[in-house]
Design a protein around this nucleic acid. Structure first.
Lengths: 335, 335
DNA sequence: CTGAAAGCGCTTACAG
DNA sequence: CTGAAAGCGCTTACAG
């Protein structure tokens, strides 16, 4: 530590400008000096200081990720969804040297102001945000002058500097419900957490459409809380109401429900149809494996990151929108 | 953006030193000027620039986390363990204002050099590292002059600047095996991935001890790969060899095995005893819920972070070691 | 209690 | 092709 560009310049017998040029391969310099600089740097163990570089260039090469963790303190633990997204983000970022991630975890709505300050303090180059936030916060983000790409949030459409990538949630809800109808189940529930969010409403729209087309009746079960726990509690309710199928708006909810059903000796698939949404890894690891709507979460993370990077490099403009396709994954919880 | 400490100083009619003092509440200044500075800052929308601050103070308030992802690109997705750790880290960090996390994900052993450069470039204040690494890399980390705290790595004991927090792995293996013996199973397998790592050897030691005390025979099944997949494949093998119980050195392995067993119509618990290790959230969400060894992963993340922070604040010295207790969680996969 | 000055390690016009 | 100089936004002795 402590060896700076000046030391390298002295050692190589050139100016610091030249050293800087070599390291950023900007101005063309003779191969001779280039080698001399590199040799001096290696000899001295010189490591460029990104902090100093960030100060002068006004670019930190830091991407902030905003995660809503007001649902539960243990965001990552309880939401497999976020993990896949983050894996997708990393996979993309790793291809660009020296872009790093810094995660801002929003513990509650009142913590939003703190996150806002944090973003300013760290001077991140861009932002990736997952999920829904208060309108004021969106407005605040929009005013920061850095690109932000949302995942699973339809609101950015009304802001000039916010972009988003979402999945085709409506079609997902439709496909799931249609499959249940095709499986000859009669009383098909829609189970949801955060039911009133725009995202869930789209999934509900799909359900509604399929139900109407079949001339069936709607059965809505919505409750707030941790998805798995809600699913667990819903088992009893659905059985008492004599439902024989359920489309759950997220996998963890379906997995909780599956647990409750299995516990009561129900033969899921044969006697009760169950479809989730997300296709998290977990959904195929449980037994019986869950039939679900795949929304390519990993690719969603990749796409959002690619979009942000493109905006940063001015290959795309802010305010872009992308909707990714979904499809049904047949497994064992539907006959 | 763009408003600096100088603007605030002008607006408040004081020097920048005073503004700096107010924001870091260092030197005592009159309440009057303090208020004036704060008012000016608010009026102008001043946000301190952590990058500039980091350059001058030589402290970035950034903690690096090193994650081994050479097992699988999708580290977070496939390893619930890491998520809990990271949640624990965040929970602790959030209590200290302006400490952030930057994650270095090691894609393969050859990527180690890159991670090393990265650490230097970002000038992180300290490091948290999870899992096992090549000896050369440990040596390299040790030489960086910043504190690093390991989780699940026994090697740091031989380095002056590396600390660690681990679980009582030996006792865990012992408790699990003992419980299986008490359940009257006769042929108890030990299933493991990364069997030759020091960590797994400790769990194996516990197994061995219990098996010997009971006068039983050892049955070792080890294979490298993704834990869940290995578990899935092991089902057939164990059944063919007429084993009637298994202690799996990690939950995801046990969950894969459980899946394979259920698929073959085995009544797990009644006819086959199964115990995992970790107590990830998943282990209680599956059906039947998994009997396992709880190692308090969340608290491990918290403890490691606390330790790092204490070293950073010179309340503890580098080279510390902490072993956390484990205990058996009774659930449904053992009779 | 407050201010003038030096400096952290880099980049970037601008000359030559 | 290479160098001298200014400056990014802050902190920190040191005077007063």
């Amino acid at each position: 530590m402590g060896v700076t560009i000046i030391d390298v310049a002295k050692e190589a017998g050139v100016s610091r400008t030249t050293v800087s040029n070599v390291f950023n391969n900007r101005a063309k310099c003779s191969e001779e000096t280039r080698l001399a600089v590199l040799a001096a740097a290696r000899k001295l163990g010189y490591k460029p200081n990104l902090v100093a570089k960030a100060l002068i260039t006004n670019r930190t090469r830091l991407i902030g990720v905003i995660l809503p963790s007001y649902i539960d303190k243990n965001t990552l633990t309880s939401s497999p969804f976020y993990n896949i997204i983050i894996d997708g983000i990393y996979a993309t970022l790793r291809q660009e040297i020296y872009y790093d991630l810094i995660i801002f975890s929003v513990s509650d709505q009142s913590g939003l102001a703190q996150v806002s300050d944090w973003i300013d303090a760290r001077r991140v180059d861009g932002l990736l945000a997952i999920g829904e936030y208060a309108p004021d916060f969106l407005k605040d983000l929009d005013s920061k002058g850095i690109p932000v790409v949302f995942i699973d949030n339809y609101a950015p459409a009304s802001y000039a500097h916010l972009s988003y990538v979402n999945s085709d949630d409506g079609t997902g809800g439709y496909l799931a419900t249609q499959r249940l109808i095709a499986g000859n189940y009669r009383k098909i529930a829609l189970c949801s957490v955060a039911f009133h969010s725009p995202l869930m409403q789209k999934r509900y729209d799909g359900y509604k459409k399929a139900i109407r087309e079949a001339g069936y009746e709607e059965y809505l079960f919505e409750k707030n809380g941790l998805p798995f726990e809600v699913g667990l509690q819903l088992g009893e309710t659905l059985l008492a109401r004599r439902l024989d199928a359920a489309f759950c708006t997220e996998d963890m909810l379906a997995i909780g429900l599956l647990h409750a059903l299995l516990q009561r000796g129900i033969r899921v698939g044969a006697d009760f149809g169950l479809i989730g949404f997300d296709n998290i890894l977990f959904s195929q690891q449980i037994y019986p494996p869950l039939t679900t709507i795949d929304q390519n979460i990993f690719e969603k993370g990749e796409a959002a990151t690619r979009m942000l990077l493109d905006i940063l490099h001015e290959k795309t403009s802010a305010g872009s929108r992308l909707i990714l396709p979904v499809h049904l994954i047949e497994r064992a919880t539907v006959r």
